[in-house]
Simulated assay, not measured.
Amino acid sequence: MRRRRTGGVRWGTIACLLLTAGITAVEPAAAQSVNKRLIDSLNYQLAYVALPLTLLVELILVYAVFRFRNNDDPQPTAEDKPLEITWTIATAIILLFVGVAAFTVLTNPYITPTQPRSAGTGGGAGGSSLGGASGSGAGMGVADAANTSNAVTVHTLAYQWGWQFQYPGTNVTTHDDLVLPAHTDIYIRMTSADVIHSLFIPQLGVKQDVFPKRTTIIHTRVYKTGTYRGYCTEFCGSGHARMRTKVRVLPKKQYRQWLRNKSKKTASTNGSAATRNASAKTAG
């Protein structure tokens, strides 16, 4: 009886190990961004490992409950070194798989972003410049500067209770309306004007805390155009629930056209304001 019992547990452990080792990462349904794809892929991999383990444990539990429910003289499982070695190795392999899978995703530059190397070298209209229209973007028009880099940087200022987005190399600034190009590397450099905030865009799989006097970065690449919702997920005062932003992802051409139109409109508004101020001074 003991031999059959230990043999059954041993073969069950081996079967679980083989099932786990034979699982390959299955690509989840098409995600809206590279961040979402990475996170969903990790979740799928961990689920494919956890489900067979859970099933095995539950089956053993149900079997033990019914098989030995009327046993008036229970006996402990006999010492079995091969069984102990088997489940120790199986556990080590499973933990190694989980650790490697999680480490691979967490160290990905889209999940743990760093400042782009091209920072401060230009980029113009939404390019990778972190300090405005300098370098190769200086002296260029909005449309030309927009094509000087493959990356887009947006400067973000969080405040109670809203979001301000500024596009380096242009005079374009938006409030609670983040506009991004699709199929482009995007760096969102964020800081806070007052307290701690956090930008969370669930459908894009991005979330990053925002601190006063510090700069944090979101790095993403969005595949699908459309409109998404962004939220502040760090309690920041009485208006926290209202601190939302609209995220619009446009095709590249439409994004550049939006920048042109927005820049012209802003320039026209500033010019009209300057004219009114000059007239007021003259009249005075």
Rank of each mutant, 00 (worst) to 15 (best):
40 D>G: 01
151 A>I: 03
277 N>W: 03
83 L>E: 04
235 F>I: 12
56 L>V: 14
21 A>G: 02
245 T>R: 03
108 N>A: 01
116 P>F: 02
283 A>C: 14
266 T>Y: 06
150 N>P: 05
179 V>L: 00
197 H>D: 14
147 N>H: 14
61 L>C: 15
117 R>I: 04
31 A>Y: 08
63 Y>F: 15
59 L>Q: 14
141 G>R: 14
281 K>C: 09
197 H>W: 12
93 I>M: 11
157 L>I: 12
7 G>Y: 02
207 K>T: 02
238 S>C: 03
81 K>Q: 06
59 L>G: 07
58 E>Q: 11
221 R>H: 12
126 G>K: 01
105 V>L: 03
136 S>F: 07
85 I>H: 10
204 L>W: 01
179 V>T: 00
1 M>Y: 10
146 A>E: 03
259 L>W: 13
84 E>G: 06
47 A>R: 05
218 I>M: 00
117 R>V: 07
163 W>M: 10
56 L>Y: 13
245 T>Y: 02
141 G>T: 13
271 G>M: 10
66 F>Q: 12
94 I>H: 09
224 K>M: 05
63 Y>L: 12
115 Q>V: 11
147 N>W: 07
157 L>N: 15
138 A>Q: 13
138 A>T: 10
3 R>N: 09
222 V>M: 08
75 Q>W: 00
229 R>H: 14
107 T>K: 13
221 R>S: 07
103 F>Q: 13
78 A>L: 12
69 R>M: 05
233 T>N: 12
78 A>W: 05
260 R>G: 04
78 A>Q: 08
55 L>I: 15
172 V>P: 11
173 T>W: 10
201 I>H: 01
268 S>G: 07
62 V>R: 13
256 R>V: 05
139 G>H: 09
102 A>N: 15
118 S>P: 06
230 G>N: 08
134 S>M: 06
139 G>S: 07
156 T>C: 07
271 G>I: 05
170 T>Y: 03
18 L>D: 04
270 N>I: 09
255 Y>H: 08
127 G>N: 03
104 T>L: 11
137 G>Q: 08
168 P>C: 02
12 G>I: 13
140 M>T: 14
102 A>I: 13
63 Y>M: 10
168 P>M: 04
28 P>Y: 03
165 F>L: 01
71 N>P: 01
68 F>H: 15
236 C>H: 10
55 L>W: 12
65 V>T: 10
229 R>M: 12
111 I>S: 01
93 I>P: 01
156 T>R: 02
280 A>H: 09
174 T>D: 02
179 V>C: 00
247 V>A: 00
105 V>E: 11
220 T>C: 03
283 A>Y: 13
182 A>Q: 12
189 R>P: 00
25 A>T: 13
228 Y>P: 00
153 T>I: 04
156 T>V: 13
167 Y>L: 01
30 A>P: 05
241 A>W: 04
204 L>N: 01
78 A>N: 08
255 Y>W: 11
136 S>H: 05
